[in-house]
Amino acid sequence: MSIKVISVSKVYPNATGSVSSVYAIKNINIDINEGSYTFISGPTGSGKTTLLSLLAGIIYPSQGEIIFGDTHFPSDSDEKVSLFREKYIGYIPQNTFLINDFTVLENVLSPNLFLKRRIKQLKSSALILLEKLGLLNKKNANPTQLSGGEMKKVMIARALVKKPLYVIADEPFSELDNESINVVINIMNEEHKSGASIIFASHDPFTFGANADIYTLSKGQITEYRREVNDEPSELRMQA
């Protein structure tokens, strides 16, 4: 199943509550296919976060429509869009959002306790992810005891633990050192090989293997689209 973005615009209300005429994004048309790599680049304030939030069903478009299978938003109910997020989306926000009263492991597991899955299964997946991210020894630590990069890794584990079909990551490498970036890239490549689509926005330069769609945003509009195609396997690498 692909995510189809059809003539989508988003206008935010201003501080007084009235809708401003400034478009965060305007008239965007994108098709994101299952199993693809999609990279969204652009300067600060170009609308990357808004576009990713729309794709994840976290905010709804002011105009246009986003279609995923039989889920249409904004026309579908919140219940149906929540189900879409629960089943298919692993979202990694740009800012750090963790529950400070919970341990690292509980933070990874807590949003998934509402899923109809066995907690034992989720727990073992969470522990594997934490081990890959080098956080296994901190699984019982409180988020306030972690560095910014470690918190980011916890958010990455939390998004990936349910094995989503689409991983949507907003600046996933910010606050990470080069070694950690490579670890995260390897995890994303593994997810991609197991069939997940990876969509992310970043300022950092990356190179891609085959089937990578690269969109450049500026002032809320797509100014450039290119598809990187070469014979190398489809995987993400840091640019030398």
């Binding site: 994840a56 976290i58 919140d78 219940e79 929540s82 189900l83 879409f84 997020r85 629960e86 089943k87 989306i89 979202y91 926000p93 959002f97 963790l98 529950i99 807590s110 949003p111 998934n112 509402f114 899923l115 939390r158 998004a159 349910k162």
Partner: peptide, 15 residues
């Protein structure tokens, strides 16, 4: 913030 985190990951309002 905690409720927002749950909602991001697909937890329904009813839950």
């Amino acid at each position: 913030q905690e409720l927002g985190i749950l909602r991001i990951h697909g937890v329904r309002k009813s839950d």
